[in-house]
């Protein structure tokens, strides 16, 4: 099946400045694709090529089978481009609602060129506001709403033309944690219930961990790492990914800060990363019972990725070389990721 969004070697330059450099991203239908990076990394510029708010300098942009940009030329313009854009919803950090019209008029603005008659438009707008839980605020002005509510209006507006894709450009960055969670829950629900494909740009890794299933990490216009969220989380390659994603490498950082000392003669340090759903037995207890080694846990942490709890722990195993070998064998039989860690990080 072809990807719903295919960014192929996309580059965006402004004079000497290259904001986006040779980026390849494929988004499958139904994905929640997180794009993280610090501000200025080129995330916003990159996603704006998806609806041609930003023209690439080179590369190919294909959305739902329609080429939007190819061979250095935009493939759609005028009315055709406007029509295509209606199939790609977008929400923004500062909501960008029209302040001089009411909430329902904001949603109706998106339907200005729809073939529905006035009654049908009103019914649809009411239904959309209901979907985001704001039916009772239809006749309010945006300024009378909280930030989270305004963003939900923006979501209703973005969904008005039944898009298959929703681009969220730092949509939760201006919100407090409670509102952020509400918006993320809403996005997740829309993804599940409507099968909406979501591109989530953010500098907050927590947002991505909560809703995304795929992730790309950007720096200086380059995608430094991308893939399945859990995969990237468990095995981050780039330094930047470690800063953002945290995960196992961050756990090692935490451990380092304790300066616990040297590893003893018969001691070995392991890092174990596991999905809390697949591990039902107590690893520490099993190691003691089956191998007879002394196991102490130095660090443990569980984070939720999407719906899946993923844990990281560092265990110190005391036992002979023979026992250590059996420990490794036993650990390998569980569905866990085991890494032998150099004792140096304890110093």
């Amino acid at each position: 099946m072809p990807s719903i969004i295919d960014l192929d070697h996309v580059t965006v330059s402004f004079g000497d400045l290259t904001a986006v450099s040779d980026v390849l991203i494929k988004v499958e239908k139904g994905d929640v694709y997180g794009i993280v990076g610090y501000s200025g990394a080129g995330k916003s510029t990159l996603v704006r090529t998806i609806n041609l708010l930003q023209q690439p300098t080179s590369g190919t942009v294909t959305v739902a089978g329609t080429p939007l940009f190819k061979d250095g030329q935009p493939q759609l313009a005028g009315a055709a481009l406007q029509e295509k854009r209606r199939t790609i919803g977008m929400i923004f950090q500062h909501f960008n609602l029209l302040n001089e019209v009411t909430v329902i008029e904001n949603v109706a603005f998106a339907l200005k060129h729809s073939k529905l008659d006035d009654d049908a438009i009103e019914a649809k707008c009411t239904r959309l506001l209901d979907l985001v839980g704001l039916a009772d605020k239809a006749d309010n002005y945006p300024i009378q709403l909280s930030g989270g509510e305004q963003q939900r209006v923006a979501i209703a507006r973005a969904l008005a033309n039944d898009p298959e894709i929703l681009i969220s450009d730092e949509a939760t960055s201006a919100l407090d944690p409670q509102n952020t969670n509400q918006i993320l829950d809403l996005l997740k629900r829309l993804n599940k219930e409507l099968g909406l494909t979501i591109i989530l740009i953010t500098h907050e890794m927590d947002a991505v961990k909560k809703v995304a299933n795929k992730i790309a990490v950007m720096e200086h216009g380059h995608v430094v790492e991308q893939g399945d969220l859990k995969e990237v989380y468990l095995r981050p390659q780039a330094e930047l990914t470690r800063q953002f994603v945290g995960g196992s490498l961050a756990a090692a950082d935490t451990l380092k800060a304790f300066h616990l000392g040297q590893l003893g003669e018969n001691e070995q340090l392991y890092q174990v990363v596991f999905s809390a759903q697949t591990v039902t037995k107590s690893i520490i207890l099993e190691l003691y019972k089956q191998v007879g080694v002394d196991v102490s846990m130095l660090y443990g942490n569980i984070e939720v990725l999407g719906d899946e709890p993923v844990g990281t722990m560092f265990i110190l195993v005391t036992g002979s070389a023979d026992q250590q070998a059996r420990v490794e064998k036993l650990l390998a039989s569980y569905q866990v990721e085991v890494t032998k860690v150099d004792g140096g990080i304890l110093a």
């Binding site: 708010l53 029509e83 854009r85 977008m90 500062h94 960008n96 973005a158």
Partner: peptide, 17 residues
């Protein structure tokens, strides 16, 4: 705010809109 213009463009608004 330029953001409002951009949001309108993203919604497929015409220049007259």
């Amino acid at each position: 705010d330029r953001g409002k213009i951009e949001a309108a463009q993203a919604l497929g608004a015409t220049n007259l809109d």
